[in-house]
């Protein structure tokens, strides 16, 4: 039994050694073709993909932060703009109101002046036409009275009364 413990006891079969060497090489070859290459390639692909995903995530996170910042800025900006628009509108409204009022006032003044002028004119016209009428009437009356009776006293009283009436009229 102790012959087992000596290496050469079983006969050092070179054939077995050769057989195992070839067997191992063939096994290594088929393992390489069917498993090693695809699996290591897959592992490499995965490592690459994970690295890429991490980069992409980092990038998109930065983009999101930037976008949020931009939006906030835009929000602030738009609020300012809105305030400005409202202010402007108020100002234009005020201006417009003032201009309308002043225009209306000017118009009113103008109209009043025109009306006064018209009234004056009409008064003057009326006075002039009345004077003419009075003159005509007086001439007519005079002629009628002269035709009727040329009494000096009567005539004098008549003319006086006329003149008095005219003076009253004029002083009005």
């Amino acid at each position: 039994m102790f012959t087992h413990l000596i290496v050469g006891a079983a006969g050092f079969n070179i054939g077995d050694a050769l057989f195992y060497a070839i067997l191992f090489i063939i096994l290594m070859w088929v393992v390489k073709i069917f498993a090693w290459k695809p699996v290591t390639k897959m592992m490499q692909n995965r490592a690459d993909k994970i690295a890429k995903d991490i980069d992409t995530a980092e990038k998109s996170r930065n983009e999101a932060v930037e976008l949020a910042k931009k939006r906030e800025e835009a929000l602030v900006h738009s609020q300012e703009e809105a305030n400005e628009i409202i202010n402007k509108a108020q100002q234009t409204g005020d201006k417009r109101r003032e201009s309308i009022i002043s225009e209306a006032q000017a118009d009113v003044k103008n109209i009043k002046e025109n009306a006064e002028k018209d009234i004056e004119q009409q008064k003057r016209d009326a006075l002039a036409s009345i004077k003419n009428d009075v003159a005509d009437l007086s001439i007519e009356i005079a002629s009628k009275i002269i035709k009727k009776n040329l009494d000096a006293n009567n005539q004098k009283a008549l003319i006086d009364s006329y003149i008095e009436g005219l003076g009253n009229n004029e002083s009005k």
């Binding site: 290496v7 079983a10 050092f12 079969n13 077995d16 050694a17 195992y20 060497a21 191992f24």
Partner: peptide, 10 residues
Amino acid sequence: DPVVAMTFAL
């Protein structure tokens, strides 16, 4: 078997 073990060692 020593032959096999020695083959791999070799």
